[in-house]
Design a protein around this nucleic acid. Structure first.
Lengths: 251, 251
DNA sequence: CTTGCACATCACGTAACGTGATGTTTTAGA
DNA sequence: TCTAAAACATCACGTTACGTGATGTGCAAG
């Protein structure tokens, strides 16, 4: 005589809840046998089917997709497997981005600094809107050069993000201090150097982009400083420029 | 006069749908202004708030959590950030597992072999049930040694999985062939060698585990072969053992 | 003044169950 | 054999973050 499990035994074995088993029964993905009184019971074959179900769920398939797999017993069409893998890889990239950004914020707090929301937001945005930014830049640069620029930045993304976070935070905290002081001068010097590092050889082209265009779109390019803060920053940068005798537009 | 956006302009700018904006209005996370006629309109401050919302969503927060963040404008409690990061890291581990397993199946198909569902299932299970397996082994081995064993296997997980997939598949395809043939003998030899590699120095202890215990739990240890297939495999292994004159139990 | 578009509000659908509420079957013990 | 408790059954509504119509107004242009 075949072993049979009540729903209570079955749920203990599988670790699923009774509700889940009832739901699987309801949608017909795991149809239980019934006693005369109407209680569910399960056989070894159900164990096997349920194995398949939880395994496929583990791979990230929906119950509907899972049902398809269960009905056919050879899984040799690689299309759905490849599709699924690609979906999961996209999700993983997403997670990598958010984990990296969360760590950035955590580190900033742990090193004793304050986390400035505007800075954080603009950095998140930078990652989130990458594709839109690429399209935007397409109006000023040929595509291969855009890609080269973005690829270079991406290869050092984490370093750049950490530097940005640190530098912008210190700048924000310096607001109010005399813009001509040597303390502020040092920060601005750092900022300029950092900006040069970012733009690299694309300086001439990027300089041509009118600053107004950038500020015109508050959605695509949220600014980490408020208008008053920016006012202060401009003073500081101007002072620095005059002292150094350089004439370059500031982004 | 402040710039104001209709919902149509706002959705184009943000890339969200009107329904989403209406929903955010409804749950009070982004309350729009209204014209006399009842139409929604948005100001610059709404742009800023929406930036926060989409940024926090990008980090994986729910709208409810997002609402909390928006209400307080300093984000210096690292607890929720750390909690969130840990959640996301768990999800990423999950994804890594499923991607690796999907690739395993895809490769198996691409190299021209058939994907045997029972083998695949039992390999998925192996990853999925790792914690349960550890608990199960705790009845036979002290915990530090279990951890050492599992850590060793984990460091070569992908290699082991590929080998398993390849070897078990060839075994399954050999079923029906004379168990005493040299072809089968070779496969069994590979199997034994592989098994030795896996158990490593834990052979004596693992040998003590009665095979019945393993087979007794069809949920925890789904077997990649059917009873008939197993019968054949036993014959092949026995033949191999006699020929080699070794006496070791088989798992 | 009308026409057409943009916008408004219901209201139900989604996925995979969780969580009671309430009634019936099964089983263990007297 | 009877009873009380445990186990099980079926509704039915809640969850998240919107999508998707259906149907009824506001608004700007001709």
């Amino acid at each position: 005589m075949e072993k049979h499990y009540t729903i209570g035994q079955f749920k203990k074995m599988s670790g699923l809840t009774a509700r889940t088993l009832q739901y699987y029964d309801e949608i017909g993905i795991l149809t239980a046998q019934r006693t005369e009184g109407g209680h569910r019971y399960y056989l070894e074959s159900h164990v096997h089917t349920l194995q398949k179900i939880v395994s496929l769920k583990f791979l990230g398939f929906s119950l509907e997709e899972t049902a398809d797999f269960i009905n056919k017993d050879s899984w040799n069409e690689k299309d759905s497997l490849i599709f699924q893998r690609d979906m999961m890889e996209k999700k993983r990239e997403q997670l990598n981005d958010s984990i990296r950004l969360l760590n950035l914020a955590i580190e900033q707090i742990e090193t004793g600094g304050a986390l400035h929301t505007d800075i954080f937001i603009s950095m998140i945005n930078n990652v989130h809107m990458e594709k839109s930014h690429k399209r935007w830049f397409a109006a000023f640069m040929p595509e291969p050069r855009i890609n080269a620029l973005f690829d270079r930045l991406k290869s050092e993304q984490e370093t750049i993000e950490k530097k940005s976070m640190h530098l912008f935070s210190r700048l924000k905290e310096a607001i109010g201090i005399d813009p001509t002081s040597s303390e502020v001068g040092k920060l601005v010097a750092e900022l300029m150097e950092f900006a040069m590092e970012i733009v690299g050889d694309e300086l001439p082209l990027l300089e041509q982009i009118p600053a107004a265009d950038l500020e015109e779109d508050p959605w695509l390019f949220p600014y980490p400083f408020t208008p008053e803060e920016e006012q202060w920053l401009k003073q500081a940068v101007n002072h620095y420029m005059e002292k150094e005798g350089i004439q370059i537009g500031k982004n």
